[in-house]
Amino acid sequence: MFAIEHSWVLLLLPLMLLPFISSVQSDLNYSSLALLPTDRLSQVFEVLLKLLAAIFITAIILGISGLHRPAKAVERIGRGAQTVILFDSSTSMDTPYSGNSKGGAASRVANWGTYESKGQVARNLLGKFVEQRQQDLFAIFAFSRNPIPIMPLNNNQEVIQAAIKAGTYERGLGTTNLGAGLIKALTFFEDKPFKGSRIIMLVSDGAAKLVRPVKEEITNLLKRHRVTLYWLYLRDKESLGFNAKIDKELAKDIAPEQAVNQYFSELDTPYRAFSADDPQALKDAIAEVNKLQKLPIRYEETIPKQDLSNYCYALALALLFLLTVAKLSEIRSWH
């Protein structure tokens, strides 16, 4: 409930006994003590003043020691979605993005770092998306040869943005295991209570092949965990995209994303692709998530540490004021 920042300061606490040992009241010269009547009221008053002084000392020491309520997590209910962002971290995401007009992209073998890659474009776009979804919870996963869990659901914008940005400093990793990545992200919802609309936001160029058992598992998991699948699709400079009309057999080899898109479209669970080519894509994606927000969402929020030293100082100030008034009204002389 309460906690102390600098517990060693509490070693000063015995000082509160000082008022009972010593006195600040001035002595009066009087001819004989025996002549004075015992005054119950003033005796009570004296004890009271000592007590107030002791509380004053205690309050001020507690203030200095940094009395506070520690941070704690509380459950809140809002309107938002639970989104797992799933980044494709394969090397194919390093190639220049089709919608890019900067010079580097034009050269055939561009030097990484001299142009904006698909991965970088995607992460910038995602950063903006997350920024506009303050109430949503985001988890972050990535995949290359294996799935890479990065952070669980949270709504700390700073760390989510830090994870999105982290992938823009270096090249991608290697092979693309889209299936394993999706399965890992989907099983993340396992055993978690359904607390709001669930979304997997796949960020990929789709240069991957899914075999039948993997497809079946993905289909089942999407259904079981009631997940909506969004695909933020990044088109390669040379890639044909979803809609180019080519022979199906040929597409298997030169446009694997068509097969992946086809598979997703045939799912019973909700699916939508957003092409990053389209300047509307970001707005579309946000509008789409807005529509899903009909369900109230439960989420954990961390209430930051609450400083209580102010209250300590306020109490001390009030007491000191009283003590000073008492001191001022003290009788200094009978004459």
């Binding site: 941070a71 997590a73 971290s89 890479i148 869990p149 990065i150 952070m151 669980p152 949270n154 700390n156 700073e158 760390v159 830090a162 994870a163 940005k165 982290a166 992938g167 400093y169 270096e170 990793l173 961390t302 930051p304």
Partner: peptide, 23 residues
């Protein structure tokens, strides 16, 4: 492979711990 760029540790202690835990 960088998972997160540096963020302040006092404010984000809880989420940083979670990220380390996920490794």
């Amino acid at each position: 492979l960088l998972l997160t760029t540096p963020v302040e540790t006092c404010k984000n202690q809880h989420d940083l711990s979670n990220t380390i835990n996920m490794i």
